[in-house]
Nucleic acid binder design. Sequence first.
DNA 1: CAGATGTCAGACCAACTGATATGC
DNA 2: CGCATATCAGTTCGTCTGACATCT
Lengths: 151, 151
Amino acid sequence: MNSATQTPQTTGTMGLLSQLNRVIYRRATEDVLGIKLKQLIALEILVRNDSCLQQELGATLMVDPNNCVLLLNDLDEHGFVERQRDPRDRRRHIVVITAAGVKALEKAQQKLEELEGEVLSNLDAAEREQLRDLLVRAMDGQDPGAALECG
Amino acid sequence: MNSATQTPQTTGTMGLLSQLNRVIYRRATEDVLGIKLKQLIALEILVRNDSCLQQELGATLMVDPNNCVLLLNDLDEHGFVERQRDPRDRRRHIVVITAAGVKALEKAQQKLEELEGEVLSNLDAAEREQLRDLLVRAMDGQDPGAALECG
DNA sequence: CAGATGTCAGACCAACTGATATGC
DNA sequence: CGCATATCAGTTCGTCTGACATCT
């Protein structure tokens, strides 16, 4: 009715999360970050682990193996990752991030932090830290590899 | 490397939000809720405002006018909403939720709360309240109608 | 051989783009 | 006439499904 309503329009935490994610997704485009948000998250995992099995990456990202292939193809074409055969089980691939990948990641992370500042402009530093902490804890409880049960 | 890593794999708040949303999105399917998550959010807005202009709904949901039409077509076909011409400006539509819509919403909300309990199982009641509060405040600062600048 | 892993091609769904109809 | 609103058709993007090759 009143067109300038500032009341929270969505009640549930899940709905709010979904809405706020929508805001992020709309703003964190490839134009802004240089890479896609999902690629950024994938690269973050790779730098953190130095390298990891392709299936572990997929499980952590919660994408099914097929989509993991597509995602890596994209990153591979840009020279941001390399896939190596695991010598101990030659069916498997070990994914490693390249120097160019690290560089692209750092650039994207910087842009994303700028965005974060804008999106969370209503929260002060302590509250942002609190939010991040709650999200970390929530994610910790998540079943990894739920995306694998698809065959 | 260790396949049972429980360390937070994603560092930034935006990435965490995106990942947690992924968890929700994967579980809050139409099969579980009875309606789609986005439809649930739309109906929530409608019960809260009793009725609202179609463009206001779109702005609040952050979907562009085109997608708003599709969304409402879907809800309309199920008999969950009705579109009425605004007598004061007959170009406009006023969207109202039906009794069936309210019923479907309540059912879906109940299921979603169950899901919320599972997804946020690592957080106690106080922490969940805290999370919800932070999300509400973050959403309050969001530019409504950003989705309208697309023509 | 059965089972696991990764790859690809085609189907499917959700979102965006452009054109049209109606009313101001 | 120009502008706003809603609608639809066509395109594009991301994701899922099924078939296949390789390796254990």
